[in-house]
């Protein structure tokens, strides 16, 4: 899932201080699961903003609404009424949701209430960690199911580097060395000979280096355009 984290409250207060009517827009998918931007968080944030404004004698009306996903137009449609009632929208979806809101509601100010962190997993309740860096050309088959792009600070494809010590990364001792994990896993699988294979330089145009990416499925597009006869 996409993991996000709400911006510091003082920063959010600053973002909306010019507006009198604000909609806190939550997203019911990824950021809901990581307790950052779902229905519950939208309610809590809206309450906090109202309390802060009441305390400081600032007129502020805060509406709240959470849709299933802010990255799909059909769900954004549900927000049309409330968006029309406010000066600005504070979206606590990931960066995709925030931008799609801005695309759908062209004449409305859309503000980000959340920082999108990474694509990750839930390690335990309250702790999430990055696992995928969206490089666009998966090599997990060669690395024992541990991604060197996401889990090595240097994205080394033939690691580890000299900074690996006791299985930890020199960037931070709280972080595992991705390549130590790869070697351990290959060992467990009895496939350590794979470690000897040199991974050649990658074509990074499938990653961010190739510019904005797009996936197109013509068959689905065609099906989506079918009108009932």
């Amino acid at each position: 899932m996409i993991v996000g984290e709400q911006k510091p409250f003082e920063q959010i207060v600053k973002l909306i201080e010019r507006y009198r009517r604000v909609l806190v827009a939550g997203c019911g998918t990824c950021v809901s699961v990581c307790f950052a931007g779902g229905e519950k968080e939208a309610g809590i944030l809206a309450s906090m903003l109202r309390l802060e404004a009441q305390k400081n004698g600032r007129p502020l009306e805060v509406l709240e609404q959470t849709v299933k996903r802010q990255c799909d137009m059909e769900f954004l449609e549900e927000m049309t009424t409330k968006v029309g009632q406010v000066d600005a929208v504070l979206s606590i979806a990931c960066g995709c949701g925030i931008q799609f809101m801005a695309e759908r509601f062209q004449d409305k100010i859309i503000l980000p209430g959340l920082n999108t962190k990474f694509i990750g997993v839930t390690l335990e309740q309250g702790e999430w960690a990055e696992r995928c860096a969206m490089c666009g050309d998966c090599i997990l088959d060669r690395t024992g199911g541990v991604c060197p792009v996401a889990r090595c600070a240097k994205r080394l494809h033939n690691g580890p580097c000299g900074g690996s010590s006791g299985g930890k990364c020199e960037v931070g001792k709280d972080r595992d060395c991705g390549w130590a994990l790869i070697v351990q896993r290959l060992q467990k699988l009895g496939e350590l000979e794979r470690y000897a294979e040199i991974i050649p330089p990658r074509n990074w145009t499938t990653s961010r280096d190739g510019g904005q990416r797009k996936v197109v499925r013509e068959d689905l597009k065609e099906q989506g355009r079918i009108e009932p006869r």
């Binding site: 519950k40 309610g43 809590i44 309450s47 906090m48 109202r50 309390l51």
Partner: peptide, 11 residues
Amino acid sequence: LDAGHILRAFE
């Protein structure tokens, strides 16, 4: 008990 219940009471 939800955080929202407490905040709403103060609101």
